[in-house]
Design a protein around this nucleic acid. Sequence first.
DNA 1: ACCTAATTTGCATACGTATGCAAACGATGT
DNA 2: ACATCGTTTGCATACGTATGCAAATTAGGT
Lengths: 339, 339
Amino acid sequence: MPGGVTKGVRVTAHDVAKRAGVSQSAVSRVFTPGTSVSPLMAEKVQKAADELGYRPNVLARSLITGRSRIIGLLVSYLENQFYPEALARLSKAFQAKGYRILVFMVSREDGETDRVVQDLLDHQVDGIVAASVGLSDDVALKCARSGVPAVLFNRGQGHRDLCEVTSDNREGARQVADLFVTAGRERIAHISGWSGSSTARERAAGFKGRLAEHGSSLFAEASGDFTRDGASDAARSLFDVSRAERPDAVFVANDHMAFAVMDVLRFELKLQVPDEVSVVGYDDVPMASWPSYNLTTVSQPLDEMVSATVSQLLARTQKDQIPALHERLPGRLIRRGSA
Amino acid sequence: MPGGVTKGVRVTAHDVAKRAGVSQSAVSRVFTPGTSVSPLMAEKVQKAADELGYRPNVLARSLITGRSRIIGLLVSYLENQFYPEALARLSKAFQAKGYRILVFMVSREDGETDRVVQDLLDHQVDGIVAASVGLSDDVALKCARSGVPAVLFNRGQGHRDLCEVTSDNREGARQVADLFVTAGRERIAHISGWSGSSTARERAAGFKGRLAEHGSSLFAEASGDFTRDGASDAARSLFDVSRAERPDAVFVANDHMAFAVMDVLRFELKLQVPDEVSVVGYDDVPMASWPSYNLTTVSQPLDEMVSATVSQLLARTQKDQIPALHERLPGRLIRRGSA
DNA sequence: ACCTAATTTGCATACGTATGCAAACGATGT
DNA sequence: ACATCGTTTGCATACGTATGCAAATTAGGT
């Protein structure tokens, strides 16, 4: 066994220095990329370090350098497959750049978010990504003051200090409107997302706007609140048997809700999709391509959104004074069997 | 605007002390729970701190106290809905206890895991949770030496220094065997998970063992590797049309694969589930209860597993010398429409 | 062989906080 | 009024590392 190793004992740069017969600064330099040391020194220090099992203490290092190489990530709900997917890719991307991520789950818009961001700032994170979560002006200001860049992922807020990376929700929704109109659907409905999110509002606005341009308009509308249960209820109310006429097409504001809607239509109301009613979602999560749903949907350019997020954020950690960009990436209509 | 606040300037306990006309230690004490200060002092310091926008630097604090209140979490793949679910609950549970979590995505069993754990140790995490990921003996030893407790979540390895929290996979699989035999199924197949995981091996062993006790045995078997594509291929090979006889029941090692299997059976092979073939999964992820699948499955006691993980880990961060427990919690057969 | 420039190394200090210790303080009892 | 005890506060130091500066060493050129 390597000499001198004892359980629970912290071995520091001083210990290594003593054993190698050099100074602590020398040890530091050997373990700091970009510094210059003689080959002999490097070898001596490495040897001593290996024997003692030394590893630099990242906390102490961050304390001095002022950068922690940690990114704070806020996520609201993982039921929607889009977010685990986004989380996985963001995480991988940051890891590849040498950053770690501190993850916080926050329930929608209560004061929790502000507390969590404050906590992140206390931890000296180098940047913050808020995935589908809003940031109060107060907290956005605090970030800006601390010099910590933040980017809103899949969410627009129009704040000057915040980067935003979204997909072009209006345009995506317009394509859905085109699809329904071209297919000759006449009673077109919409199940919207939580109205507190820009994503939901933009999709609804784009959809209705385009219908209007076609000289058409919405037959019915209800909010599904971006939850499965909310969407199920919305579907039940829109397709209530007591109604004289029912919709023959429905645009659901995301895939996660669309699955719920299809389940209600097929299994509760015994309606044929797409023969009796077309269903279209938004996001193109992996499950949308599974044959059980085979859902027509609008894809979000996830990889591009992730790349944009990472590069924006890291760029702004390097130099200050880079203005906060608002990127809006194009999606694409994916035609499958449900419409 | 509060006086003296400038952008990008770090305000420290010294600044607050100066403004309040007290010592830095006093400031520290005001912001450290459990210390005693006079009401007057508390008020003065709070006032100055608020005016300057002071917040304690957690890094410096951790450097001294030796505890970071950060838990490292390793996750391998989020496609399987079980893991986002577990992640969300673990995260919430640790947050509730005042801990933050540093998340790492690791691909299955390459050397990456070891590097990541080392990185976590460098960050002075107070504990490590490995969800469905193995830890090499080498790295387990390093954790033990550093005094950092680790727990394997949903994975057994039989290592002395590691906590393990699993569900009783053998018993769950036995219940599935009972179900098939009682229902009079005669050609019983199994699509197993990745053989590198204890979970997969235990489920297979429990299932086969119980069949043997019934005087029966496996009609066919294939590995689905815990992936959707692997399971699809396995289903295609087990139910190949060139075979004289095909299985009339199949136990799939987790829900995530079971969905793939059902899709292949129904949409490629045009088989009726459950009439022509019963399908049973494992985990009871939320999607299993969706009417499109309505999957009979064995539940994992997720909440209990999470509680056990949190309490085990935190207990071992408090006192050393608590032995590493191996907890095995019971699951339950959930009968739905697919079997 | 000598002078200069370039490189390597050690010394000292800083990062921002917590905490043991002793001094100062206030309260209490006789 | 004084002695005693408990509480509050400040001083000094420590945590483990990075880094500016000057001393020491080496290399290079004529």
